[in-house]
Amino acid sequence: MNWLSLFSDPNTQWILMGSMLLGLCSGVIGSFAYLRKQSLMGDALSHAALPGVCLAYMVTGTKSIFFFLIGAIIAGILATVAIGYITRNSRIKQDSALGIILTVFFGVGIVLLTQIQHSSSGNQSGLDKFLFGHAASMIKLDVYTIAGISAVLVALCFLFFKEFKLLSFDPGFAKGIGLPTILLDQFMMLLIVTAVVIGIQAVGVVLMAALLITPAVAARYWTEKLHVMVILSGLFGAFSGFAGTLVSSMVNNLPTGPLIVLSATVLFIISVLVAPNRGVLAKTRLRFSVKNEHKLFTNKQVKEKSL
């Protein structure tokens, strides 16, 4: 298949569009998750979404994003409540609690998924694609839904930008001036879960966390301004979605999720290396120039002394 025919195919256009919007909104939301040091929370929420989605399918028998969202939200709430409960009421720290809950939910999800596969209607459901994503299976309606929800998510992040910023930087101060921090916290979780759910089809639950976090981490290297970072992260996410989907539609049967994540990772590596100020190269160069200047300076002093 050559490139041009790929772009002229309206179906591919739709799919590329969907993946880009998905990357955009997860990049934007992921920025806040990353800055709040909740990177792993995204991972837990996406893994927890699997049993919720499977149950939603088993109960309703349809593959609708709306029901999936309800199932994933319920599972996500259960998971966060469980993590919170364990952290508060035992000596187990949050990272361990996350590890426990994430794997338990994912395990349950796999059991349910296998159950669905073995049922009569299951073979056609395509739910097995939920693990690693299969963007090619998106239809026009899916893309519409993804586009609509992404737009709402990005708009919400724009509206609540000031509040999210304060909550991410200094939650104590935020609470002090009267922001309902607990409510905002839940709200942000809801945004993450929603991003995960619309990403299930294209990226899959296993790797969705990477699409939330990797663009944000990469964007952090380029700027010291939050709004620039959020926009950059969104663009990085969109590019990853685009590139990953493109490669996967050129090579047969490669799942989209891993390719999207690999694209994001390439961006991340480039950022680590060449970003101004924070990048490895910039830092090395700075170190060398400081060293050289210092050498020059001391040489001069030595010369002056000897004179």
Binding site: L35, K37, K165, F169, G172, R220, T223, E224
Partner: peptide
């Protein structure tokens, strides 16, 4: 109480 490596001035 806060992380000073936050992207802000």
């Amino acid at each position: 109480s806060v992380d000073w490596d936050f992207p802000t001035d």
